[in-house]
């Protein structure tokens, strides 16, 4: 069951690069959020009630509902439908993300540490590297926030891989922190859209002397 979920999660990564529509990217983030909840729920057998509430908040509520709704609102306000600017063509990106997944798989299995769950580590590495690559190849700043969120999903998987369990208060602080950062980034994207008329990084180059 877990393997199937992780494979579906890896497929969402490839699908991020196959799709040109911004709405699809947001929907994929919601799907990843839901998958993370199911994966965490199955994986953490001996979890206490507080821990369960926190995971529910972080994955289902924040990652699968609040953030996608917020991003959709920004998308509609700024009339963002289809990506037009990319540094690398989609076809090559799909090949590269596939290579990233394969390389992450081999890297994870080459690590000899019995405290680390390699299957989670493989997907976590793919997601983190895939998110960074997604951010780099897109010129549209809206997609940069999507890239950061993919990396954050990778970080969540990594926490499952290494079995690190933070104290409740600290986890709450991390969760609130991430949520606030995303909301503020969203607000700034909105402002850039109205101030510069577009969301391309090429219009953000006035600071160089």
């Amino acid at each position: 069951m877990m393997i199937v979920l992780l494979i579906i999660f890896a497929c969402t990564l490839i699908y991020f690069f196959l799709s040109e529509r911004v709405e699809k990217h947001i929907n994929l983030l919601a799907v990843q959020g839901t998958l993370l909840f199911i994966i965490a729920f199955i994986n953490l057998i001996e979890i206490n009630v507080l821990g369960l509430i926190l995971i529910l908040l972080e994955t289902l509520i924040v990652k699968a509902i609040i953030i996608p709704r917020f991003l959709n609102r920004i998308r509609r306000t700024n009339n963002l439908n289809r990506l037009v600017e990319n540094y690398i063509p989609f076809f090559y990106s799909v090949l590269i993300i596939t290579a990233i997944i394969i390389a992450s798989f081999f890297t994870a299995y080459s690590i000899r540490n019995h405290f680390v769950d390699v299957k989670f580590l493989a997907i976590a590495l793919s997601t983190i590297l895939g998110g960074i690559y997604f951010t780099i190849v897109h010129k549209n700043i809206f997609n940069h926030i999507v890239g950061i969120l993919i990396v954050e999903n990778g970080a969540f998987l990594l926490s499952l891989a290494v079995g690190g369990e933070f104290p409740f208060l600290v986890s709450m602080a991390v969760l609130i922190d991430i949520l606030i950062a995303v909301l503020i980034i969203g607000i700034f994207i909105d402002k850039i859209g109205s101030a510069f008329g577009n969301m391309s990084t090429s219009s953000l180059n006035k600071l160089k002397d």
């Binding site: 540490n113 405290f115 680390v116 983190i128 990396v151 990778g154 970080a155 990594l158 926490s159 290494v162 079995g163 690190g164 369990e165 933070f166 104290p167 991390v174």
Partner: peptide
Amino acid sequence: FIGILLLSVKVSYAD
């Protein structure tokens, strides 16, 4: 944060 996670391998006990 990813760095913190790596650092917490087998040193964190939710304490």
